[in-house]
Design a protein around this nucleic acid. Structure first.
Lengths: 343, 343
DNA sequence: CTTGGCAGACGGGGACCGAGAGTGCCAGCT
DNA sequence: AGCTGGCACTCTCGGTCCCCGTCTGCCAAG
């Protein structure tokens, strides 16, 4: 398999050169710039094979080769050592993030930082509330059938959701419910509180309540569950201007910006993450959205310990510095996780 | 002043044509497309005068003329009738916005709508909390010297701010403060509550408190004031992809995106608004930011009645349909104001 | 299996040119 | 005095042509 091995080295060299120069790379420049130990003719043969196997392609006859999505995929899959960030960079990250005063600030600083480090577009998802305990739940009647629930956790996070009720409730009922909820949920972990609220109304719960309150308590319980399970569907974006250089072609640039504006696609891509440590690279056509067929997404989760709190990603052209981006994404994710756990 | 009058009509025609076609407009096409009642030669003379006065310019010798910033300024200042939106459009706005379930949703739908209506970039600022009453204030100790204050208003808005204390406080002190604040502030309008909190510690307030609590109450008071006075410094953006067409030139496009990313500039531009009805158009170089020297900003405030709650704007190329944009911005601002007042 | 050599293909860039659009100016008309 | 038609001039834009350089594929020899 020595020949196969060399072919992979050729592919790697092509990726490296193309990422650096943004220009199709030919056999001669390849042997000049990398120590491949063979002549350009040999490289040409290897390139012919690589092309036949679909790893590289030429934009037009008699131009150099550029990697295909499949080529990048192989390159990324075989990445062994992710070059760690320099001590200076790590210090810069820590210094910049530690100045954050609240959740919004942490997230905004993180995306910004990530965008600057990678010179691409960065995205961070608002975190979930796993493991937090309920400090207070406030209920506000918006209309006869709409209730706003505000949940404050002991970690200082605040979440609000609207509740749609099946039948109208009176102000007194809301007031009673408020007391009931305070009694049952305060101090508990979110999931426990959810359970407790569901239990109300069940026979033998020991808490005497009317039917409406029981229903609403149930709704609240489900709401708490959804707070725990479903990550917030908000995203923070930064560095949009960085991709102007990467997509000179106006229509494709427009497409990318549209996709970023939509957010739906991004949320879907981030939703597949299941573990904070998981690093997912999605290249070109692998993204479902046609608008993103020219981009790659480097995504990972963040959280405290094993618990996934949210996702974080970098979006850039398929022609990007994967090792560098992966390193930056991972590092920032780790710091964000730390910042959010230690509170 | 008949000649002067005609010259203005020529300028108006140039603006109209240039906005429509995006191409420099010459004297002949001008007389063809508009009923100016004079020959092209006369128009040429007028154009020469307009150019000398700085209202129009030619990109290069023997091309048509395009309006300068000064030209747009005159055009906008002399705008009398803002064409009202069609009934269909108004219905569409109302229908789309009325589906919103909470504040975030209202704002997101508004920007989105505005971006679609104008085919440009839309910005909305989070609203202030004027006139709201305090339903609940929750305090969470983050560290010995940091306190998170969460304010819930009767309108269902939730705001959180961090408080930096000059000396460490104990959990019991925070607990005592919580009771105190609940007693003094709940149910009051924000500004009244702020006053009440400041009054604590003053001689003769009748409320016996220790020095630390008094200090913290004071801090809370100032915090409430700042909630009332300073608009939230968050913005929601939409329609970024729309400007790719308007700025074919990559570097200038990048500049605009950078400015939008920064937000600081936008916040400054929105900060000058003082009244919900005020409509402010800032053209080209009038924007302080060099990155925005090719764009115009059409901004207005929104709120309930006389009270300004926040700003709302459209950013686009100086070559934009001012009457249409102004109409759309005004209409959306009115609806947003309504949505946020009626809650 | 590798290498050097060679012919062939093809895009990019520069030079050239003609068409078209637009201007400025002037003389004449009202 | 102001408007108009005419005319000469200027300049950009788009198309064509052609050459240069680069890169490939293939082949025969090591």
């Amino acid at each position: 398999m020595r020949a196969d091995d060399r072919r992979f080295r050729v592919l790697r060299a092509i990726v490296a050169d193309y990422v650096a120069t943004q220009e199709p790379v030919g056999s001669k420049t390849l042997v000049d710039r990398h120590q491949l130990g063979v002549s350009s003719a040999t490289v040409r043969n290897d390139m012919a094979v690589l092309e036949e196997e679909g790893y590289i392609t030429q934009p037009h006859t008699s131009a150099g080769r550029i990697p295909t999505d499949k080529g990048y995929r192989l390159f990324v899959d075989r990445l062994t050592k992710v070059k760690p960030l320099s001590a200076g960079e790590r210090n810069a990250i820590e210094g910049f993030l530690s100045k954050a005063v609240d959740l919004d600030d942490v997230l905004r600083r993180s995306v910004r930082l990530l965008a600057q480090l990678t010179r691409q577009v960065a995205v961070v998802q608002y975190p979930t509330l796993v493991r937090s305990a309920v400090r207070h739940i406030e209920l506000v009647g918006l209309s006869e059938t709409r209730l706003l629930a505000v949940v404050i956790t002991d970690t200082g996070r605040v979440e609000q959701r609207t509740l749609d009720l099946s039948r109208p409730v009176s102000a007194e009922q809301v007031q009673r419910l408020r007391m009931l909820v305070a009694e049952q949920a305060t101090g508990q972990r979110l999931d426990q509180a959810a359970e407790a609220l569901h239990a109300i109304g069940d026979t033998g719960s020991g808490v005497p309540v009317d039917a409406e309150s029981a229903e609403m308590a149930g709704l609240l319980g489900t709401l708490l569950e959804s707070l725990v399970e479903h990550p917030d569907e908000r995203l923070v974006l930064s560095g949009t201007s960085n991709i102007t250089g990467s997509f000179a072609d106006p229509p494709s640039l427009r497409g990318v910006l549209e996709a970023l504006d939509e957010q739906v696609t991004l949320l879907k891509l981030l939703a597949v993450l299941e573990h904070p440590e998981a690093m997912r690279v999605s290249i070109g056509q692998e993204n479902l959205d046609v608008n993103l067929s020219g981009t790659s997404l480097v995504a990972t989760g963040y959280g405290s310990g094993e618990v996934l709190m949210g996702g974080l990603a970098v979006v850039g052209p398929t022609r990007m510095d994967y090792p560098g981006t992966i390193a930056a994404v991972r590092a920032v994710a780790q710091y964000v996780g730390m910042m959010l756990s230690e509170n």
